[in-house]
Every structure is written in C-alpha cells, then in structure tokens.
Design a protein around this nucleic acid. Structure first.
Lengths: 106, 106
DNA sequence: ACAACCAATAACCAATTGGCTATGGTTTCT
DNA sequence: AGAAACCATAGCCAATTGGTTATTGGTTGT
C-alpha cells in the first residue's frame, strides 16, 4: 500500500539523483547553483531532479533571498528499510557488520 | 564504484518487478507460468522483468525439464543496505524498531 | 532604475522503458 | 510421430525519462 516506497525507489533509481543526494548528505545544505556546478548538467536538469527527490521527501529546501538551499532528509529512507526488513531475510546475517559499521561512523 | 547497487536500484524501481520479487520471497520458488498468471501481464513481459532481476542477482533460476523455477535471493539487497548505512544517518534512530521487528519475525 | 544573478517552468527532443504479438527451441504427453 | 506446453528472444510501439535551450519571476548589486 505505501506509495511512499514507490517514490523513494523511483528517485534513487537514477545515478545522477543518487549523486545529488549523496552530496547533500556528505557536505550538508547546498544551493542549486552549487549543485549544478558539481553535477555537470544544466541547471534546469538539476531542478527537475530536485523535484523528484523532493516528492520522495529525500530532500528539503530553504529559501534564502534569491537562492534555494537544499538538504538531505535521510529519514525518508525509512520506507526502504522497512521494505527490506520484510523481504530481506538476509537481514540478521548482516546485523553484526552493521553494528561495526555504525561504531566506525562515530 | 559498485555498479552492483546501480542494477539493484534499477531493478527495484519498477512496481511490477518488486511485486515479482516479493511474491518469490513470500511464497518461495515459482515457475514463469505461475508468475505470469499472478502478474497479470504477458509471459514475455514477465521474462523480460526476470532478466533485469537476474542481472541484479535478485533472483536465481533452476531448470526442471521444460519449466524454469525462479527464486528470490535477498542477499542481493546487501548493496542497498550498505549504501543506506553510509548515507542514512538516521540509521541509529531506527535501530531499536528494527530489533523489535526482527523479533516479531521469528 | 537597471543590470546581473538565482532558480523554476515550459517546450522540445532523443533514448530508454514496459508492454504487446510472433516465433523458435525444448520438453512432455498421447 | 505429432500436438501441446513452457519459456526465451525478436521486433514493434506508445509512454516515460533525462537531457537541452528559452523564458519568466524574484532578489541583489551598482
């Protein structure tokens, strides 16, 4: 039923969009101008990707004068986690590895 | 660099393919014939989806006479887990919920 | 006031995608 | 042997997608 996961899967199916999301997650809030420079495609193309990421709630925005600052919203990945928890029986197998990974992230 | 995640994201971006994978994960191994009946689309369309799922290693197959039995390979979701572990800072927040969910799955 | 900049939208285009029918290669059943 | 069943592939088509340039609405700087 959750049309939520649908939007998230669609949004992440494109490598350019993943790169945008990854950049925002790594380096924090960025303007469309900066995102465009780093993406290597036109500004309208970036804006269109941002619309799709926004529909999936993967990014949020904040208007500051004439510029728009976008930021990553990792909570939006929750539907994917839930989906995988249901259909990915493997989960338990990777549990320890994840725990280690989390500790390394601290 | 992992082109692995690319294939997996692409494969799961289509709801019909997700439904096929979910069916295999829930009900175990199934023939193309059965999958076709449950999918509500033509047999060649199902076969094409299976090719894409297979490229992502999300399904495996086993030939039995004239029929082919497909099965889900949830381990193929690992690249997604890894990707989310890196970019999803939220992870720690949902850790407890996941633990509960896993216990309910037992 | 006006020029320049930022970002979103519109209009268009080529490539990809998801569906179909037709066909062919095996295997099974009479 | 011949018919029927199962599945993969080929070829076709409409819809979607990811990109482009052109334009517009706001905001900032001179």
């Amino acid at each position: 039923m959750p049309v939520l996961a649908d939007h998230v899967f669609k949004a992440l199916s494109d490598p350019t969009r993943r790169a945008i999301f990854e950049g925002l997650a790594r380096h924090g809030e960025q303007t469309v101008h900066v995102l465009t420079r780093r993406a290597g495609i036109s500004q309208p193309a970036v804006s269109k990707h941002l619309v799709i990421l926004k529909r999936a709630r993967l990014v949020g925005r904040r208007h500051v004068g004439r510029e728009t600052h976008y930021s990553a919203r990792p909570q939006a990945l929750a539907p994917l986690v839930d989906w995988m928890a249901v259909y990915g029986v493997f989960w338990r197998d990777r549990f320890d590895q994840l725990e280690n990974l989390l500790q390394r992230m601290d």
